[in-house]
Computed example of a mutant assay.
Amino acid sequence: MRPSRVTTALGSALLAACEGRQSALAPAGDGARETLDATWILFGGGAAIFVAVMALALYAVAVPPERFRGGRGWVVGGGLLFPIAALTLLQLYEFGLTRRLAATPEPALVIEVTGAMWWWDVRYRIPGQEPVRSANEIVLPAGRPVEIRLDSADVIHSFWIPSLAGKLDMIPGRVNRLSLTPETPGVYRGQCAEYCGAQHALMAFAVVVEPPDRFDAWLAGQRRPAAEPADPLLERGRDAFFAFGCQSCHTVRGTPADGRLGPDLSKVGGRRSLGAGSLPNGAGPLAGWIAGAQHLKPESRMPSFDVMDADTLHALAAWLESLT
């Protein structure tokens, strides 16, 4: 029986209870599926050993002594040979799994992800094309192998998308590589899995898996510069962006804003959340984030612009929402 069928047979009840966009029990990629298969095999093997040992212990207690005299054979066989054989087989299986996960085909896409306190800097690199920078959201093509190169700008973080792959640490000064092939289109949730400071819990990201043609169209759209404001309100918002110095930290393609300290805002209006999963996206949350970032996410590097009047704040939020 193939491992994937074993997974289905043993885990259907648990999967029904634990499905979701952030669940290691609902795999949507090759790495997550292989890892889940290994989990069920190890769990099943451990459970079988536990049942056998408990049955033997119960038999030894229940039967008369003359029918169960024990002896050196039980100690050598049950306490030495059996554990060595069982653990060796499981270890060989795990070695094979590791080799399969590492032996990935040439990636069609390389994505560089840098963890920072407390957000994600994302760069898409395709040979022969200019890289595309984004933040706090990753879009992947279904059925195409992807290599994600992980590093950190400050402390140790850990990159984990339970439904697509296992977790991997992000270490300052080192690049770790995670290879995966997403299989099922959908929206999945990732999370920093290593405590990294006060706002560790608010360091999440969305992973959107699209059919290949939709991914190509999305990537082409990401390269387009920001459009000129369509009305006076949006024009006032754009002017406020520069008047308050937002360009010092943020980039908006097609404008003079080219800051690198904070997230790229070129397409911020099209993202699903703000502040690395802290808030849903929209004009209202954008205004709240601008005015009260330190209240919503204390100790982040985004200052609160609570000196901005209501009309200017509304215009700035509307302009940012229009960047899609």
Score class of each variant (00 low, 15 high):
G262Y: 02
T251A: 04
G197R: 03
L233K: 03
A243C: 13
Q222T: 10
G270I: 11
A227C: 04
A226C: 07
D213H: 10
G197C: 00
L234D: 02
E210T: 07
P232C: 14
R260K: 11
K267T: 13
P225T: 05
K267I: 13
V209C: 00
G262E: 01
V252Y: 05
E235Y: 04
F241H: 02
D264M: 08
P212V: 13
A201S: 11
R238P: 08
G221R: 04
V209N: 01
P225H: 07
S248R: 14
D213N: 04
R224Q: 13
S266R: 05
Q247C: 05
R272L: 15
P225W: 01
F241Y: 11
D239C: 09
E194M: 14
P229F: 02
C246V: 12
E210I: 11
L219K: 12
Q222P: 06
V268C: 02
P211D: 10
R223L: 04
E210A: 11
G254C: 11
A220N: 06
L234I: 12
G245C: 05
A220M: 11
R223D: 09
L265G: 05
V209H: 00
C192P: 10
V208N: 07
R253G: 03
G254T: 05
D264C: 03
G259E: 04
F241N: 01
A198E: 15
C249Q: 01
G270V: 12
P256H: 09
T255E: 01
D231K: 04
G269T: 05
K267S: 01
S266M: 01
S248Y: 14
G259M: 14
F241S: 07
P256A: 13
V207L: 00
L274G: 05
W218H: 15
A217I: 02
R223M: 10
D258Y: 05
G254M: 06
V209S: 00
E235D: 15
V209D: 01
P225F: 10
A227T: 13
S248N: 12
H200A: 13
G221E: 04
T251L: 01
C192F: 06
P256Y: 02
E194L: 12
F244P: 09
A226T: 05
C196V: 11
P263W: 05
H250Q: 03
C249V: 00
R272C: 11
G254A: 04
G270Y: 02
K267Y: 04
E228S: 14
L274Q: 06
Q199E: 03
D258M: 15
P225E: 07
S248M: 15
A220I: 14
A201V: 07
G270K: 07
V209F: 02
F205S: 06
R271D: 08
A230Y: 08
T255H: 00
H200Q: 13
